[in-house]
Each structure stands twice: as C-alpha cells, then as structure tokens.
Simulated scan of single mutants.
Amino acid sequence: MTILTRRTTLQLLGGGAAAAAIGNPLGAASATELGLAGPPAPPTLYLSHMVTQPEITAMADTVKFQQWRSPDMLTAMMSNGQVQVAATPSNTAAILYNKGVKIKLLDITTWGVLHLITRRDDIKGLPDLKGKTLMSFFRGGMPDIVTRYLAGKQGLDFDKDVDVSYASTPMEGLQMFLAGKAETIILPEPAVTAAMLKSKIVGQPLNTFSLQDVWTEVTGGTRMPQAGTLVQSEWADKNPEKLAQIKASIASSVDWMNNEKDACAALGAKEFGLPMPIVRKSLDKVHMERVSAAEAREELEFFFTALSELSPKLIGGKLPDAGFYLD
C-alpha cells in the first residue's frame, strides 16, 4: 500500500493545490491516511479485523492499525491527529471530551472483561483483599478505577487496606503473575484465560471472579459499559459517509468476533502474542455487543456517576453533554 510523501504529493497535485493540501495537515491526513488504534485487550480485535475489509481500505491511500499501550498514549494519538478511530475505556473518552479534545463517543462494544485472579485460598471477594497485596495495570485507568470503586462500596479503604502495585500493560502483568511476582492480580481477557490455563499446567489452580458480577451485586446494574469506540469529531464531521461505513464495519466485525471465533482467535494470537487455543477459549468469556453511544447513554451516565463518587476527575469533572454521544 502506497504512503504519499510530501514530495510525491506536490508532484502529483501541482504547486498551488499541493501547497494548500500540505498547509492543512489535518485535512491532508484525513484525505490520504486513516488511523485506527486499540488497547491490548478484546476491543483491539474488531478494529484490527476492520482494516482488512475493502470498505475500510478504500477510505484512504493508507489505512493503519496500531495498539496503544497506555491511556496517555491514546490521548496523544487522538490529539495530534495520528488516529481518527480508537477503541477506548468509556471514562477515558469522557475525560478527553470534557478537556476539550475534539472527539465523540461512537459506541460501546465491550461490557465487562475484568477479573480478579489469585493463588490464595483466602480471597473469595474484594473485601478479602484487606491487608494483602494486589497487582493491577494502567494506574489511574479503567481497571484501577473500577476495582477501587467496587472495593470501596464493599467496605475497603483501598489506599490504606490494600498494598497495590501496577504493571504497564495487562500482558506485562500476566508475565509478572506467571513468574510469581504477584499472588493476586486484576486482568482482562484473554490474559485471564492464559493465566488460568498456564497455572493449571504447572499444578497451581487459581481462584477467580468477575468484576462484572461484583458490579451487578454492588450497583444493581446489569452490565458495565467498560469500553467502546471514539472518533475524532472533525474527521467525522467532514466525512459523514465514511463515518457511516465505520459504524457498519464495527457492527459487522463485532458480529465476526462472536460468530467466527476460530478466525478471531488466529487474529488475537497475532495481536496479543498468545497461543491461539488460549485466545479461542477466552472469546467464550467476552461479552461483545455494539450499542450506539446515544442508545447506551443511560447506562453510561449511571456508570460515570458511580465512578465520579471516587473523584469527578475520573470522568473529566462532569457528565459529558449530549454532544458527546453519537447515534
């Protein structure tokens, strides 16, 4: 696939037109390059699959997918125009929007993939973490926030009662857990399944429970709108037909994840660096369903209000207004 350089563009377009195009980097990027990004977790798979679809590759001369490794990395990608479409924790999207970054939430696709895993027999729920150590990942990000909120609702003063350390990414956390550097850890799929299977092989059975189940117990909410897709608002406004295709392609790729799990596992093995059978088994435990942001607004506001009990900063200071939610 061809990447147009500045010199090539000038030669092809001619002086005046080319200069105008080069003088507007955002416009030029959106005309010739489409960037997609996702985290080292299940939402990456529908975006990674999308870049193989002719309807998406036809949108630009170059269509790129890459993984982001931290919320700060995602923020930089969206702010500098490197990426136009990204999978994101829902509260990260709210923070960006409330900070004035020109993004909108397109949908929610991922409804609870976080689990607590432990080698200890005396941890059956979050209250049992009192006086113990815990590893998580993305300090201050969605896994950390959700764990702190739920633990607080169950009587823990997280900062005082739990000794918490952090890995940079879930895959780093998985490796540290398997190496015996942590007894108890918060992980998403497919890292959860990898930990369970690899520990079983060496004769170290683990205890685990889903934070989605704890969320339901604590809040009465039926599901946790954990992650979805955001879009750069200027790109979306300038490209309504392409935006419509992005929506359709997300829906079809999520359906592909749910219905073509063997093929999805092969892609996941490549993206996550895990054996295909592990990724395949993990897909049976992941709830993927595309719901437009506008349709999910009530559930999102319930979720955001809960998180803001810890600190309003966790959603950017306030509930996002109606302009945040795309149909």
Rank of each mutant, 00 (worst) to 15 (best):
T193L: 10
L36I: 11
T169V: 10
L10G: 07
R290F: 07
L319E: 01
V286Q: 11
I186C: 13
K160G: 02
F272L: 07
P71Q: 02
N259E: 01
T57C: 08
F302W: 01
A244D: 08
T222Q: 15
D61Y: 14
G268C: 09
A248T: 12
Q212D: 04
E289W: 09
A263V: 00
G112R: 00
T118P: 14
Q232A: 15
P240W: 05
L187M: 13
D72F: 06
K285C: 06
S30L: 08
M196G: 04
T110V: 06
Q53I: 10
L156D: 00
D159T: 01
T75F: 01
T52E: 13
L243N: 03
D61C: 15
K247S: 08
A31R: 14
L156M: 00
K313D: 12
V254G: 10
F272Q: 04
L307I: 05
L211S: 03
V291K: 13
S311P: 15
W256I: 00
K281F: 05
R297T: 03
A191G: 07
Q82P: 00
M78D: 11
P225T: 02
A265Q: 07
W235R: 09
A294K: 10
T305D: 00
I56P: 08
K261A: 02
F272M: 04
T92M: 12
F209S: 02
T9Y: 14
G180M: 12
G131K: 01
S79G: 07
T62A: 15
T62I: 09
M288N: 08
